Simulated scan of single mutants.
Amino acid sequence: MARNQRRTEALAWLLRRQFSTEALRRHLREWPFFRVERQMPERLRVLLDRLGRKDPRRR
């Protein structure tokens, strides 16, 4: 059991190290699904407003 835990921890350390590099961050920012949107689309804003006004007691 300890061996598997050490391997899991080593893999987690490796992934954290690789995903925290600035080069990879720059690369991922270019992909559309990792791009941060500055403005929320109007349809999503309306939907969130409607969900926020929904009665929490109703299901």
Rank of each mutant, 00 (worst) to 15 (best):
M1L: 12
M1C: 08
M1A: 14
A2P: 06
R3E: 01
N4W: 10
N4H: 10
N4G: 11
Q5F: 07
Q5P: 00
Q5M: 03
Q5C: 06
Q5L: 03
R6T: 00
R6F: 01
R6S: 00
R6Q: 01
R7L: 15
R7K: 15
R7F: 04
R7D: 01
T8E: 00
E9S: 12
A10V: 04
A10K: 03
A10P: 04
A12C: 09
A12S: 14
W13T: 11
W13R: 15
W13P: 05
L14C: 02
L14Q: 11
L15A: 11
R17L: 11
R17I: 07
Q18I: 14
Q18D: 07
Q18Y: 10
S20L: 06
T21W: 10
T21A: 08
T21C: 13
T21K: 13
T21Q: 14
T21L: 12
E22R: 15
E22S: 15
E22I: 08
A23G: 14
A23W: 12
L24K: 00
R25L: 11
R25V: 08
R26H: 07
R26I: 02
H27Q: 09
H27L: 14
H27P: 01
H27C: 09
L28R: 02
L28D: 02
L28N: 02
L28Y: 06
R29F: 00
E30N: 09
E30A: 12
E30T: 04
W31S: 02
P32W: 04
F33I: 00
F33L: 03
F33S: 01
F33N: 07
F34C: 01
F34D: 00
F34P: 00
R35K: 11
R35I: 05
V36L: 12
V36Q: 12
V36W: 12
V36G: 11
R38I: 06
R38N: 14
R38H: 08
Q39A: 12
P41N: 13
P41G: 08
P41D: 06
P41R: 09
E42I: 05
E42L: 11
E42W: 08
R43C: 09
R43A: 15
R43K: 13
L44H: 06
L44G: 01
L44K: 07
R45T: 10
R45G: 00
R45W: 07
R45P: 01
V46F: 10
V46N: 10
V46W: 09
L47G: 03
L47A: 04
L48K: 08
L48V: 03
D49E: 11
D49Q: 07
D49V: 04
R50K: 07
L51Y: 05
L51E: 14
L51G: 01
G52M: 10
G52C: 04
R53L: 05
K54D: 08
D55T: 06
D55V: 06
P56C: 00
P56N: 01
P56S: 00
R57V: 05
R57M: 12
R57S: 15
R58N: 02
R58Q: 02
R59A: 08
R59Y: 07
R59M: 02
R59E: 05
